[in-house]
Design a protein around this nucleic acid. Structure first.
Lengths: 185, 185
DNA sequence: GATTTCCTTTGACCTATATCAAAAAAGGGG
DNA sequence: CCCCTTTTTTGATATAGGTCAAAGGAAATC
């Protein structure tokens, strides 16, 4: 899914607007395992995942990695907090397979928000959708058994669930890899 | 904090705009324990808490109530999902003490979003802030001990933490009332 | 002020999941 | 195709927090 298709699917931009907006995005190929943003750095770029997949994760004091979110095709990938408030990112942003992304800087994005009311609306809608998803995850984590949480994962990220190491999923779901391994049977 | 003060603190509206916007909100006094939205109903109204406090909660099959969020002075109170997507609410919305709210309907809100680019921006910013807070709660729930979670609660809702029944807080934090009681010592 | 209802604490026991350790399986590069 | 690394599975043991039950306190109602 191209960024133009994505934008159009949410808010009805004119062709001219789409051209202008698209001009602010830069298409990039990113090789597997590349880190787009490091924990502690300020995230200056928003990415749209055209092809591939990624995750955000942080490293605990004990060195263990905790996956915080997965990003599939057709999603915006960023450390939302860090990008929008320009504060140090709590997470690393990593591409999990060879991917193609469209990137845009904070300044350009702000410009688009300011220029197009419709873009601001799109921003609001996308943020609302993200909010809903996080609430879903929260409910899963807080009130469901390990087994049910895995089912939630399969439902939320069907395409991703079978393509990443078990440990990534386990930490995303707030359980150990051993537990997840036992559950899958 | 009045709604006008709140709006102005986020986006610089003109006096005319503020007057127009304020005209769409209705001031209401709501008595303690009143339910503003019932689980399963579509939430048609957004509330701004001028005075008082509230919570969202749902009732599990076994009859137990789970608090999902607390709303203090100067916050918007709604079942975000239900309000923005007009889908059945997963939660009840309840006022915990005698309160004063400003209410606005979905239609009026959409009108304001459409009329004022700045309002759309405000919507985006408020949603982003909420997103950040939910992520914080998620981290607390997922990776912290019961003791640390209580500390998070005290930090996030200092004014509310000491004014509501222990059970409300316990379920919000994903633990039993007994556990929370033991922790507080 | 007494009574009833609600809220909080305490105690004994239990269970899901964590931890630690190691074996088994899968995958990738030369 | 083999070796080395990474990932997954399995086993044994430990523990935070849950569950159930009941006693104390507090506070609303009459």
């Amino acid at each position: 899914m191209s960024i133009v298709e994505f934008l159009s699917s949410i808010v009805p931009f004119t062709q001219n607007e789409l051209n202008d907006i698209q001009g602010h995005f830069k298409k990039e190929s990113v090789p597997k395992n590349q880190i787009l943003v490091h924990q502690g750095a300020i995230c200056k770029t928003l990415y749209f995942m055209e092809q591939g997949m990624g995750r955000s994760f942080y490293t605990k004091e004990n060195g263990k990695e905790i996956t915080q979110w997965f990003f599939g095709v057709g999603k915006f990938m960023t450390s939302a907090d860090s990008f929008f408030q320009q504060t140090p990112s709590l997470y690393n942003l990593e591409v999990l397979v060879d991917s193609v992304v469209f990137s845009i800087s904070k300044e350009d994005m702000d410009q688009l928000f300011a220029k197009y009311h419709k873009m601001e609306k799109l921003g609001r809608l996308v943020t609302t959708e993200m909010l809903t998803k996080i609430v879903n995850k929260l409910n899963a984590i807080q009130f469901q058994t390990a087994k049910e949480r895995y089912d939630y994962m399969l439902a939320e990220f069907p395409d991703i669930a079978h393509q990443v190491p078990l440990g990534y999923i386990a930490s995303y779901l707030g359980m150990t890899q051993e537990t997840l391994s036992r559950i899958r049977k």
